[in-house]
Design a protein around this nucleic acid. Structure first.
Length: 567
RNA sequence: GCGUCCGUAGCUCAACUGGAUAGAGCGUUGGCCUCCGGAGCCAAAGGUUGUGGGUUCGAGCCCCGCCGGACGCACCA
């Protein structure tokens, strides 16, 4: 079923045909900023007036006159410099609300042309701790993948693990010299991290250690059995650690092909690029120059014969094209790597790949001092500890607000609220802004936070627990109160907002919508008693409550956030 | 130096891709509980959108110049 905006678009399109216009660009129909201008508006008359050098208001009147909206609402009005405003009528609203209430997807339609998309996100480095820096990619990527699936795309998520980098020389060196088996047993990941740091600091002090680390790496890459075994054990331990975090976060990947997976392909790939004339030799390295992008080259083989991540990323691209032939590959990776991706995409173009490549960049997470978030000792905050703290803090809050809850339920709720708070803090913000991490703000029950939205859901569900009979969708829907209409209109917009998340990759658009929806629900809740109402008023209000609950639940799920039934 | 991103209320952030009087939350001030969860609602105060030009019916958004910040610029990912 089309959304209100789409219906209006179609009617406008018909009117323009009658008047002899054939606009190429889609007709913009946007919700109005202020309800005094109605519910939806279009600026099409002003755009066309510019083209034909006519008077925008006159043109707007002619278009308005020919636009048939008798079954939708009031006759369109011309206002301001040439806007055409539309107001949705009560009958139309009731009809539409009834329709989306019967739709499992709440009116969200499948895209006309489903695409096959690969979404690469999270991508932590093995043998390094997963820290706050990874959380943005993880949460953002997951949300985008969920939305893309929901609107009908075929999505393959891939965790592009950094399991073959230079850091492994250090890890292996330290493994051989400083390993403590007891610690490895009790806290494997902690020990791995300790080993890496140990080698890292020693290498900085002593060039000979650095050289030995390099040699260990070379041995590994040449297939030395001992180093290979150490690498495999480290990789196994890291993956296990990552899995527990992903499980905690409710995130699943279709593929987890690490960089090591592509390693055997690298020499052949470099030869191919040389043969095609895409790559050239420079200062002993094999590089791709594209001065339109940057003076510095894209290094696909180092002068010492080794491979960096530029090479792996090209090999990965080739593999994906061969295996899946996708329409798009989306990389959810931090903004500092913009140059890398511009170069990668440039290389892909030269290789003749026809695929939509997107770097979905994002800003950094700052501490409350507005500097990159660190622990007191100056290290990056381990993700696992951060998530546990979120759960603990949420647990305390839930305990304060609702001490009567059974212990087991309280623990489950703490998890839902705590993790939801962390995710929502990310996703409610424009992805490019560096955002300030604040426990008190994200866990507040007021304002634009996950707990506020979850609580709105819980309140709406509480009504149904008090209901003495099963809820059934009513045949007739009455919307007499302004608060009912406002809520109904907002709910209809869900189907417009969800697909729009993908243009510009902005989950914060959905988050902000859910916040507005919850606010509208609270006004409705305040002004329209449900259980004490009677007849079709009661039935209609129950329907609004149910529809609200489903919408906020579905919306939060698209952001990867769960809702509790009580809290 | 070159490049990318950014600069909006005291603070944290929006602004549907160029639309009407720039909106929320927190904080501040003042109201609302015989009623479904007050974890809520209503109202007020708070702005020359860093700055100077330009483009046009119309600019927070596009173009140019400054100021201020973050990040990146040949073999680490």
């Amino acid at each position: 079923m089309p959304t209100p905006a789409e219906i209006l678009q179609e009617r406008l399109s018909d009117a323009l045909q009658l008047l002899g216009f054939h606009p190429i660009a889609p007709i913009q129909v946007a919700p109005t900023a202020d309800p005094i201008h109605g519910d939806y508006q279009t600026n099409i008359a002003m755009l066309l007036a510019k083209e034909v050098r006519g008077n925008p208001r006159d043109l707007a009147s002619r278009i308005a006159e020919k636009t048939n909206v008798g079954d939708i609402g009031d006759p369109p009005e011309v206002a301001g410099p040439g806007f055409i405003n539309f107001r949705l009528g009560v009958e139309f609203l009731a009809r539409e609300v009834g329709a989306i209430a019967r739709d499992s997807k709440l009116g969200v339609q499948a895209v006309p042309q489903p695409k096959k998309l690969i979404v690469e996100f999270s991508s932590p480095n093995i043998a390094k701790p997963m820290h706050v820096g990874h959380i943005r990619s993880t949460i953002l990527g997951d949300a985008i993948a969920r939305v893309a699936r929901f609107v009908g795309h075929q999505v393959i998520t891939d965790n592009h693990l950094g399991d073959w980098g230079t850091q492994f020389g250090k890890v292996i060196y330290a493994w051989k010299h400083y390993r403590e088996d007891g610690a490895l047993e009790s806290d494997p990941m902690g020990e791995l991290v300790r080993l890496y740091r140990e080698a890292d600091t020693r290498a900085k002090e002593d060039p000979s250690v650095l050289e030995e680390c390099r040699l260990e790496l070379v041995k590994l890459q040449q297939g030395d059995p001992e180093n290979l075994e150490i690498w495999q054990r480290c990789a196994g331990l890291s993956r296990a650690e990552f899995s527990t975090i992903y499980e905690m976060l409710g995130i699943r990947f279709d593929e987890q092909l690490g960089e090591s997976f592509y390693h055997p392909e690298l020499p052949g790939m470099v030869e191919r690029l040389l043969a095609k004339g895409v790559a050239t030799e420079s200062q002993g390295a094999i590089v791709i120059f594209d001065t339109e992008i940057s003076e510095t080259p894209f290094i696909i083989r180092k002068s010492d014969g080794g491979f960096g991540y530029a090479s792996t990323d090209i090999a990965t691209l080739e593999y994906r094209m061969q295996k899946w032939n996708p329409d798009g590959i989306w990389y959810v990776v931090g903004a500092p790597q913009q140059l890398h991706f511009r170069q990668l995409f440039g290389a892909a173009r030269r290789l003749g790949y026809q695929v939509d490549l997107e770097h979905i960049a994002f800003g950094s997470i700052l501490g409350e001092d507005r500097k990159l978030m660190r622990t007191r000792s100056g290290e990056s905050v381990p993700l696992r500890e951060l998530l546990q703290e979120a759960i603990d803090r949420a647990g305390k809050l839930v305990d304060e607000k609702n001490p009567a809850l059974p212990k087991e339920d309280a623990a489950e709720i703490a998890k839902i609220v705590g993790l939801g708070a962390v995710k929502y803090a990310e996703l409610s913000q424009h992805r490019m802004t560096d955002y300030v991490f604040s426990w008190s703000k994200m866990l507040s029950f007021q304002g634009n936070t996950a707990p506020y939205l979850q609580n709105a859901y819980v309140r709406s569900r509480a009504i149904f627990r008090k209901l003495d009979q099963a809820f059934e969708l009513p045949g007739t829907i009455v919307l007499t109160e302004p608060a009912e209409r406002t809520l109904a209109k907002k709910t209809l917009r869900f189907a417009e907002v969800v697909p729009s998340v993908l243009d510009g990759f902005k989950p914060n658009v959905l988050a902000n919508f859910l916040f507005e929806l919850a606010a509208d629900y609270h006004v409705f809740y305040e002004q329209c008693p449900v259980l004490t109402a009677e007849g079709s008023a009661k039935a209609s209000r129950l329907l609004l409550c149910d529809l609200f609950a489903r919408t906020i639940k579905t919306g939060l799920e698209l952001l990867g956030i769960a809702v509790p039934e009580r809290m």
